[in-house]
């Protein structure tokens, strides 16, 4: 308990991190409360099109080209963006951790093979790669998550591999081997807990980048057609960017603020998780 207390104290001292965490919590709340705050289908045409924010009290953020409520879109879109972000990060995190840990722990040809595969994924520009994957299959939430995970796991794997190599040479790991602990158990109980700090930070950064990539895909028309995400909203407003820029700017601002919040929060995590563990192991 004392440890999590000290962690919280260190985190609280970092003001940008606290702001970031506040933004993340706010976005989460909006996503959860969307059906209550703005009941009904965000795709539904509920009013006059081209209403500027503030023009009609019923639509505080205005309406889009077909007369759909932008506020409803932002609220419901939050859950789409967060789902894509978190799901991609979780899948990429698990995959990258597993492969990175195996690579770093066993070394030898296993390491060579896995790292060459990771490199193959990393040589193609990542957005292009995601675009190709989504285009090859039908765009849906699943394929988007799969595409983003596919381009994100090598980074995680490299990090976990380096950390595993570092921790593996420590004597406490040797000690576990000498009393008969199996390899998988050593990885799970000794090595991974000591890689956790940088891993958490990297995965939280993936959440932010996944939200951006999803927005980019949707903007280009490769989003999930059944889901109204922030990226889809931007692409809807694209045609009228000169006359009604608010249609793209509002969801754009939502993405900006959310990604910024996640990045600030993960920076804070990094600082709060790292201080003494680092120096003790190196």
């Amino acid at each position: 308990m004392a440890r999590s207390f000290a962690f919280a104290r260190r985190y609280k001292r970092n003001i940008p991190a606290v702001i970031g965490l506040g933004i993340v919590i706010l976005v989460l709340l909006l996503a959860v409360l969307a059906p209550v705050l703005r009941p009904g289908d965000p795709w539904a045409i509920t009013g006059q099109p081209y209403l500027w924010p503030g023009q009609d009290a019923r639509f505080p953020l205005g309406t889009d080209v077909l007369g759909r409520d932008i506020l409803s879109g932002i609220l419901h879109g939050a859950s789409v963006s967060l789902f894509i972000g978190v799901a991609s990060a979780v899948v990429a995190g698990l995959l990258g951790t597993a492969l990175g840990a195996i690579s770093g722990y066993y070394g030898g040809w296993i390491d060579d093979v896995l790292m060459r595969i990771a490199e193959a994924f990393q040589t193609v520009p990542s957005f292009l790669q995601a675009l190709i994957i989504v285009a090859l299959f039908t765009p849906s939430s699943i394929t988007i998550v799969a595409a983003i995970s596919a381009i994100s796991w090598p980074g995680v794997a490299r990090l976990v591999r380096a950390e595993t190599k570092r921790v593996r040479s420590a004597d406490f790991v040797s000690a576990c081997y000498t009393f008969g602990m199996g390899n998988l158990r050593i990885i799970a109980s000794q090595i991974l807990p000591n890689c956790l700090a940088p891993l958490i930070v990297t995965v939280s950064v993936i959440v932010a980048s996944a939200i951006l990539i999803e927005a980019g895909l949707s903007f280009l028309g490769f989003g999930d057609p059944t889901q109204l995400s922030w990226g889809t909203m931007i692409s809807i407003g694209r045609g009228t960017l000169r006359s009604a820029w608010y249609m793209s700017a509002i969801p754009g601002l939502a993405i900006l603020v959310t990604v910024l919040g996640i990045n600030l929060a993960s920076e804070g995590l990094n600082d709060a998780l790292n201080p003494h563990l680092r120096e003790r192991l190196s």
Binding site: D171, F172, S174, P193, L277, R280
Partner: peptide
């Protein structure tokens, strides 16, 4: 039957356990 004591007691103990 066969156990070992290491040189650096800090490095031979898991810092998180």
């Amino acid at each position: 039957g066969l156990q070992m004591v290491f040189q650096d007691p800090l490095l031979s103990l898991n810092p998180r356990a």
